[in-house]
């Protein structure tokens, strides 16, 4: 059959395998455990390595090692587990290594809860780990898009030699939709001549490292990396828009919340209110330009999130005071309803 019915978590795992990821290191945590479970069953069949590490900290450092050897590698977790991985992630960024990290976000802070959330936005796009680094953060909103974004994540990681995070809320990890898997091509990507694969006494040793003895030397490395980040901000922004023409109110939402926002926009239309949607697909680089361009033409924007208001800060920076930016969210594992979002549209229209 051309299409199969898959859970988001399974689709991520299968897409990674199709994208030639042959190394997976993980540690179970709800609501993303199916990624590990799927990898455990599939990896051995494709000649890859699945390893359940003794902890999240161990898993991310195994990723660090495998990435240094130039292979496609992935780890996955959910919020508390991602917090544990942050130190390793910073090292990976500091050593310019490509890898894919999946965060199927649950409620926080602390142990929080297993129901869906989007409250790891700050952690993902503003750092999380220490130091001047960035991570491309991709937020799909359907299972098919999850497949496509997983494949893109590996390509972007290799293209820019950096960690890329695929971020979905728990709902996206657990829900099922039909998907198909595109053919994956990797021949357009740069050769990994920096990888530590053994010199065979024929070349100078490659070194994977994030320590630089002299401050000026480290500064130079960081500034060069910053240029790379600027290129990414100019060229890799991805978003989707709907009904921005003539819209009075524009919702900004990603992931599952964007699906619910669409239902709310349909309710608004039935009630004669013109509402549109900007759905960021890359959370970093953030779709600043389209938001800034849209702001002068609308009454207001509303950020809808499963958090107490995180992405709303980036929207306000993009809007820069040109129109009011409101916020509506549910948190703690609660999910907004179409009707509740529609009430917000009506309130501000």
């Amino acid at each position: 059959m051309d299409k199969v019915l898959m859970k988001g978590n399974e689709a991520i795992a299968e897409a990674a395998i199709r994208a030639n990821c042959r190394h997976f290191f993980g540690y179970p945590i709800t609501p993303q455990t199916e990624i590990s479970a799927y990898m455990a069953k599939r990896m051995s069949k494709v000649g890859g390595t699945f390893l359940q590490a003794e902890s999240e900290v161990a898993a991310i450092n195994m990723v660090y090692g495998a990435a240094g050897a130039g292979v496609r590698v992935m780890t996955s977790s959910s919020s508390p587990g991602i917090s544990l991985k942050m130190e390793g992630l910073s090292y990976i960024a500091g050593a310019d290594l490509p890898c894919v990290i999946v965060n199927i976000v649950r409620a926080g802070p602390g142990l929080g809860g297993i129901q869906p959330a989007q409250s790891d936005y700050f952690q993902a796009v503003k750092g999380g780990g220490h130091g001047d680094y960035r991570m491309i953060v991709i937020a799909p909103s359907s299972i098919q898009e999850t497949v496509d974004c997983t494949i893109d994540a590996f390509d972007l990681a290799d293209k820019y030699r950096m960690p890329v995070m695929l971020m979905g809320d728990g709902m996206l990890g657990q829900m099922m939709e039909p998907v198909s898997f595109p053919e994956v091509k990797t021949d357009h990507l740069p050769k990994k001549d920096w990888a530590t694969t053994g010199t065979k006494m024929k070349r100078k040793a490659n070194i994977i490292n994030s320590l630089y003895i002299h401050p000026e030397e480290l500064e130079e490395v960081i500034l060069k990396r910053e240029e790379k980040y600027n290129t990414i901000y100019e060229t890799e922004v991805k978003y989707h828009t709907e009904g921005l023409e003539n819209a009075d109110v524009v919702l900004v939402a990603y992931g599952t919340t964007a699906r619910i926002a669409k239902a709310a926009i349909a309710l608004a239309k039935q009630n004669g209110i013109k509402a549109g949607l900007i759905r960021p697909i890359t959370l970093w680089p953030f779709p600043t330009d389209i938001i800034a361009k849209t702001a002068p033409n609308v009454k207001c924007m509303i950020s809808v999130e499963m958090s107490t208001g995180q992405m709303v800060e980036d929207i306000r920076l993009a809007v820069n005071g040109v129109c009011p930016v409101h916020f509506y969210g549910r948190t703690g594992g609660a999910v907004p309803t179409p009707t509740a979002i529609f009430e917000q549209i009506r309130r501000y229209a």
Partner: peptide, 8 residues
Amino acid sequence: DFPWERGV
């Protein structure tokens, strides 16, 4: 159902 199919 999915969350976008739900009411209040």
